[in-house]
Each structure stands twice: as structure tokens, then as C-alpha cells.
Amino acid sequence: MGMRAIRKQHGLSLAQLSKKLSEEGIKVSPDTLAKYERGQRSMSLERARQIAQFFDVSLIELYGDQYVADNLRLLREQQGLSLTKLSEKLASYGIKVSVATLSQYENHEIKVPRQRLAQFANVYGIEQEQLLIKHTNKGKLIPSAEDEKQRYSQERAHAKAFIRQATISDLRKLQTMICERLRKC
């Protein structure tokens, strides 16, 4: 269907959609929304999920499958695989896809069945939704080791902050409980 069609179906202009998204805590300018709709700007997976959730549609309904073929080619190239090697790799997972069919997928000659999307995502170790959105940076479809290290560091910092906060909170609860029992606070 596509984002533009869904927006129009809801009777919203770009400015109205931007305002409604902002009210939901999703800040996106009308200009950015227009660029998303025209495919001039790529949307993060998280942003795509937020907008899909706002409209109560799936990512496939929001995006369609227009980027799948290009993303499959990017994934294959990132892993340095020929079509033949990819066919062999898929076969090792019990997925039989001929070289000719893979070529047709990548060249937009035939659509990739939804069941295959899940299989490809599993083989490449990515989320199925990542095959649906436009990727302008080849290095971002499959995170590099450096990206993974950075993500791990950020997650670790968030976890430490959470633990510190939880500990302070737990101490306050414990203090309140002790005071109530002793009735001295």
C-alpha cells in the first residue's frame, strides 16, 4: 500500500500527520515525512515501527516490498557471496532456491514470497523488517564489528545506569520499610 496511500486513507496532510505523530512523542517534520514517502530519505527501523504502529499497520503495508530486492543484493554483496555461493548457503539451511530464482529476486523480475523473507532474514541473522526498509548506507544493513562494539558499550552503559537507579530506589524502599517497622522516621 505505502505510507502515502495510508496517510491519505486516514485523510491527513503531511502537516497534520507530523502534528499527530508529535503528540505521540514521535517528532518528524512534514518535509521529512514527504522525503520518506518519495523514497528520498531512509527511515530507521525504529521510526518505521513507530509510524506503522501509529497507523496500526504492518511494516509490509507501510513499505510494501519495493526495497527487498535491493536489500537482498546488498546483503549478498556485504558477505562477499556470489549467487551460486548464496544458493549453496541457503541449501545448508534446508532452503532450496536456484541461482536463477535468486537473480530474478535481485533484479525485480519476481517478488520474494513472504515466507522467503523470513528465511532470508534468518540466514543473514537480521530482523525480517530490515529487508523492507530503504538502506542508503551499505555498511548499516549488517552491522560491522565496530557497530556491534559501540552498541554493546551503549547497552552496557544503559544497564549500569539502570542498576544504579534500581539500587537507589531499592534502598529508599528498604529505608521506608525499616522506618515503618521501627516507627521512628
Rank of each mutant, 00 (worst) to 15 (best):
G39V: 01
L174H: 07
L14M: 11
Q128N: 04
L45R: 06
H135A: 01
E37S: 01
E24I: 00
G94L: 10
E24V: 00
E37H: 05
K35S: 13
R38S: 02
E127S: 14
T32L: 00
K134S: 07
P30T: 02
S87E: 12
E180S: 13
T136H: 12
Y105E: 04
F120K: 03
R164Q: 14
R151I: 05
Q165L: 03
A118I: 06
R38E: 04
R183I: 05
R4Q: 00
P143E: 06
L117W: 15
G39F: 00
Q115D: 03
K20N: 09
K35D: 14
R116H: 14
L131A: 07
L14H: 07
E109Y: 07
F55K: 02
K35M: 03
L21M: 00
G2R: 00
A34N: 04
Q115Y: 01
Q130T: 10
H135N: 10
T32D: 10
Q104I: 01
L74M: 15
Q175H: 14
S22Q: 11
Y67E: 15
L90D: 15
L33K: 03
S18H: 09
R7Y: 00
Q130R: 14
L33Y: 00
R7F: 02
T101G: 05
L86C: 14
D56M: 03
S44Y: 13
R114E: 15
E155P: 09
I126K: 11
S169H: 12
R47Q: 11
S82Y: 02
R76L: 03
S13H: 00
S13R: 01
G11V: 00
R73I: 09
N122E: 15
E88I: 05
